[in-house]
């Protein structure tokens, strides 16, 4: 799902950085202050888990693969901005150590996968959690992946419209190619992972881990 370096022009990456950097700093200051010290071990563990599951490729028919994101859990347990800060860290580590994504496109990837996706998931959960808790969590994770995918596809499509030299495929090709695996595989897997991980965390009864 990550947009690699070189696929987006400064016309997109610089405005994305301009939104991402102050928002990240504000979110980190607000949610990772001294008051959060008791939650940090769990948040750190879930961030590490998100990092690991993003490296696991799920093969999809058609010769491609997809992967989970795993930070919806953080959005539901703590706040969408916690997910945003943590996913940004994951993306930075992936860019520096794996060559996945990239530093120039970090703002775009973080806003799509770390902010818009988890925020959509959190809103879906808010709307549904009084009806059925597990269904709400599943739908939240599913929606999170779809919104993140749409955002990444939108950024690539916009880039093609601005300058095909950076990204030669039109949105009519990219959108279905990204959405089909997302709708049929990644979304379902993300939903199952989030429901399963949340039930384990509840059983573990960790301090600071609640989902009201």
């Amino acid at each position: 799902m990550h947009v690699p370096d070189g696929f987006l022009s400064p016309q997109i990456t610089i405005p994305a950085y301009a939104v991402w950097a102050p928002l990240w700093a504000w979110a980190a200051r607000r949610h990772f202050g001294r008051a959060a010290v008791e939650s940090l071990p769990v948040i750190g563990t879930l961030t590490a888990l998100a990092f690991v599951i993003q490296t696991i490729m799920i093969p999809v028919p058609g010769g491609t693969s997809t992967h989970l994101v795993g930070v919806t859990l953080l959005a539901l347990l703590y706040h969408p901005l916690v997910a945003f800060v943590c996913e940004s860290l994951v993306l930075l580590v992936q860019a520096l150590f794996f060559g996945a994504g990239g530093v120039t496109v970090l703002g775009v990837n973080a806003l799509a996968m770390g902010l818009l996706g988890p925020l959509a998931g959190w809103l879906a959960w808010k709307a549904l959690h009084r009806v059925n808790g597990k269904v709400a969590v599943f739908v939240a994770a599913y929606a999170s992946i779809q919104v993140a995918t749409l955002a990444v596809a939108g950024a690539l499509g916009l880039q093609h419209a601005l300058s095909p030299r950076y990204f030669p495929l039109p949105v009519a090709v990219v959108l279905p190619a990204m959405l089909v695996p997302s709708l049929t595989a990644a979304g379902l897997a993300e939903g199952a992972y989030t429901v399963f991980a949340l039930s384990l965390l509840r059983k573990a009864n960790l301090r600071g881990v609640t989902l009201d």
Binding site: P4, A153, V174
Partner: peptide
């Protein structure tokens, strides 16, 4: 060299 997968993956 720029390789572009339909799903937005690739390398440059």
């Amino acid at each position: 060299v720029k390789v572009v997968d339909q799903t937005g993956h690739g390398l440059d």
